[in-house]
Design a protein around this nucleic acid. Structure first.
Lengths: 335, 335
DNA sequence: CTCTTTGAGGTTACCGGTAACGTAGCCATC
DNA sequence: GATGGCTACGTTACCGGTAACCTCAAAGAG
């Protein structure tokens, strides 16, 4: 009956005959209390079922937020989903919560999201995009909080960068293909008009071909979203224009599987008639009739390390500005 | 130089010679101001680039939160990812933000997440799970905010329910299979020890078989996470036990594709030697050599309607307690 | 002409933590 | 024995909105 209103720091303090500042210190693990006091406070916390009010804590001039904003291109990708789960889990263990958004590869949407996020006074921000608008950069400066750019490595990070080089991924895979004797290689991608990570892999691919003086016979970069359909029809369109390819490099595994479906349909055998390679290391790629040649991304590791780096920075501990997460080329048997 | 500190409601009010309460009213679209005042306020807001402080707004005895917590089983699923994107987008347009978590089908994890969420004093909660712990229900009661249960329809929703019947999905697909003359049908699922939505589809399947007195020859419910691997090996294991099946119903499309890979490997033709059906309507399923028979889920629509229903309830508008989102059986050609 | 209603505001109190600063007692040091 | 440093707290001020309540003038009712 008298428990109408939830107990606050003040109630805990009164019950114990101390000030609420002391209780606050214990809860935040700050210094300035004895072991005996700590025990008493923790017991009372447990007894009353006290629930901290993050709003009040983050509010005010000396607010201490435990909120971290995260913006990824989309939530429907298992790769980003895995990164998000890993970020969520690791940050939760360290006492932080996330507010998640997606920008669909459109920098302006990222800015809109960031503006809304800013009104929640977060402690830090995680961005998974290569390009930011001027407005985005201004808001980030005004916020004055740590920023982690994940996924692709940038040469000059705003603050922290955790990821890998998509360019190198493309280059490495192309070298793998040319080393296997493939010379006339096509490329099927998507979202060619936007500056995505896939675009960088394509550039690495072009560089790889230049190295051995092979000729990129043809490329087919759709304006669609990447996916099975895009891979299927992209392959169809490309082969209609040029049918003497000996290999195709796809934007990602989904597109590669879509492409494979088309190749199978028209009776081309992989890798006998034509080689294919994808990117991303999706599970399905490993149980195709032949294991797909692809690049595996340690998404869980990436999320965990990004979370830890960000929290280290928040705590003022030393952190490397740039952390490289090594990816792994899965040889497979489709080249 | 004098813009050291961001402008607040008070600054806007002072510049205009009104009280901050008037500005607050305009911003929230409450009543109690003239059209002329509204114009002035909006202009000043735009001029100064005022950013509202959601923390302050939600704080205090009469706090008005725009935060909505959302908890789904996992973030790596394109289906839930699509629901989340739709929820995020629709809620953002209506002026709300989300805090997203995942519970991995473990009710206790949902409770832990909810407790943390509660410390942010959200305006509402969205849950995508069938089972809740007693602790979860107690926290929800204490919070006293609208709750939307999405994905599976429950008979007695806590507050609002938006979704469809997984049981009916399973029943409908089974009828489709038996109507096509299939009699000896196996089932390959995953996570059999947890009360998941897939479990309900399985129950619908069993009911469907009972209707025509067909015999469920064998089932193979793995304890693994569903996925391509699980489908592949589940099919292998099941066929090792019983090789005179004429159809297999899979937990979802991913598992069906995995199963198809195994069937192809051992030389069984689909649908000539054996029929298969999946669930979920994933994109890849439609461009297999044969279009997979499956159930398509309107995830975007579900997210949008759930968001709108929840906001209606928050505003006190009338809403149906239960909203059914119709799913669609995609005939395909694998049965 | 008086009374009541309504629109358009203003005033007040308040939330629940936190940094900054103050202080009292104890011990070590010069 | 004066000084200084440390530990373990207590005190104070403060944030930026919001509901509830109050005020005042003009319009309408009788």
């Amino acid at each position: 009956m008298e428990k109408r209103t939830k107990p606050g720091l003040e109630d805990i303090a009164r019950n114990l005959g101390v000030s609420k500042m002391t209780v606050s210190r214990v809860l935040r693990g700050a210094s300035g209390f004895s072991e005996a006091t700590r025990e008493k406070v923790l017991q009372e916390i447990a007894r009353t079922g006290y629930l901290p009010n993050r709003l009040a804590a983050a509010f005010g001039p000396s607010g201490t937020s435990t909120l971290i904003g995260v913006c990824v291109p989309r939530l429907t990708s298992p790769l980003f989903g895995s990164v998000l789960e890993s970020l969520n889990l690791t940050l939760a263990r360290l006492g932080y919560q996330t507010m998640i958004g997606s920008h669909n590869q459109i920098p302006d949407e990222e800015e809109v999201w960031l503006r809304t996020l800013a009104s929640w006074k977060p402690a830090a921000v995680v961005l998974a995009s290569r390009v930011h608008t001027k407005g985005t950069l201004k808001i980030l400066r005004d916020m004055g909080v740590p920023v982690a750019e994940i996924w692709d490595l940038t040469t000059k990070p705003i603050d922290l960068a955790i990821g890998f080089s998509h360019f190198d991924n493309g280059l490495e895979m192309t070298r793998c293909m040319t080393a296997a004797g493939r010379k006339k290689i096509g490329y099927v991608g998507a979202l060619g008009n936007r500056n995505t990570s896939g675009q960088l892999r394509y550039q690495g691919f072009v560089r790889g071909l230049a190295e051995i003086d092979a000729t990129l016979v043809v490329e087919e970069i759709l304006k669609d979203q990447p996916g099975f359909y895009a891979g299927y029809y992209g392959t169809e369109t490309m082969l209609a224009r040029s049918n003497d390819l000996d290999a195709i490099y796809f934007h990602d595994d989904e597109m590669a599987i879509g492409g494979l479906a088309y190749l199978t349909k028209i009776g081309m055998r992989v890798p006998d008639d034509i080689g294919i390679a994808g990117w991303g290391g999706m599970e399905a790629a490993s149980i195709l009739p032949r294991r797909l040649t692809t690049t595996a991304i340690p998404t869980t590791r990436l999320g965990k390390i990004a979370a830890e780096a960000l929290v280290s920075r928040l705590r003022g501990d030393p952190v490397d500005d740039v952390t490289i997460i090594p990816t792994r080329l899965v040889p497979g048997s489709t080249i």
